[in-house]
Design a protein around this nucleic acid. Structure first.
Lengths: 150, 150
DNA sequence: TCCTCGACCTGACAT
DNA sequence: GATGTCAGGTCGAGG
């Protein structure tokens, strides 16, 4: 219970292709971006989800992230690092899905053509979740998905 | 000791023009950007300075900050917020300047013409500091400045 | 009031 | 020991 650091956020189990039973969402929803095993504070009273920096910058449309701005102190260097949290809407999501520490959320991205500008594509985000395995809960290994609009 | 929140990061005392004695640095160094009163952790073992978000986004060349990316959960909204800290080089600065909680750092910006492209200007950053007033320390109300390269 | 949200502060830990 | 990131808190504004 004590050591609850983020799982070394492993690269995805390559899209639901692995046989872990998460195929009750249509594969057409899009590509898998990343997973996070929820920490106690992700599902606690803090009402926020810490998003691993690398994934936030890789996958969300934050535009032009330089992973920190570097300045120089004369001969030295000063670096400004950034971190990312999701706040708005998260707490409601946790409650409705009854998420607990150890459960897993999984972000996916899809595209739709933009009707007005066919050469452009519009992002659609999805968030899936499942209860962790190795639990006494009834609903283990159930996957769900929840659409997002980007 | 307990309540050590950031001073409501007030707007600057409008460039050293106010009579608080901070004129031992050449006014040619540039415009005043913002101040921060140092917290205990800013000068402690954590080796980092928390930079108020608004100032980081207003003044540093982080490019294209949208102050949080907004996604929509169907009819809901999820928002990703960012925070900023300065890490590299900060701890050395604190030690050399003997900064303590309650002291104030002040960021300034100047410009120099870019020799190759005269129409462009290059940022130069400076960080000034002073010990807080109302202290028993000897060096109160001393201002210093420290050049940065941008 | 209570809750959410957003910003900030502080500490732990990995590298 | 220095740096970078994440976890876990507090606080205040606003609904």
């Amino acid at each position: 219970m004590s050591t609850t650091r983020t799982t070394p956020v492993q690269e995805p189990t390559e899209t639901g292709a692995s046989g872990s039973g998460n195929n009750n969402f249509n594969s057409a929803v899009g590509e898998h971006m990343f997973d996070k095993v929820l920490t106690p504070s992700d599902v606690g009273k803090l009402n926020r989800l810490v998003i691993p920096k690398q994934h936030a910058e890789n996958y969300f449309p934050l535009e032009d992230n330089q992973t920190g701005t570097v300045l120089d102190f004369e001969d030295r260097t000063g670096k400004i690092s950034q971190s990312y949290v999701m706040t708005k809407g998260w707490c409601r999501f946790v409650k409705e899905m009854k998420l607990e520490s150890g459960d897993i959320v999984s972000f996916h991205r899809g595209y739709v053509p933009d009707d007005n500008e066919p050469e452009k594509r519009k992002n659609i985000f999805f968030i899936d979740w499942r209860h962790r395995a190795n639990t006494n809960l009834v609903h283990n290994i159930n996957y769900h998905h929840y659409p997002l609009l980007g």
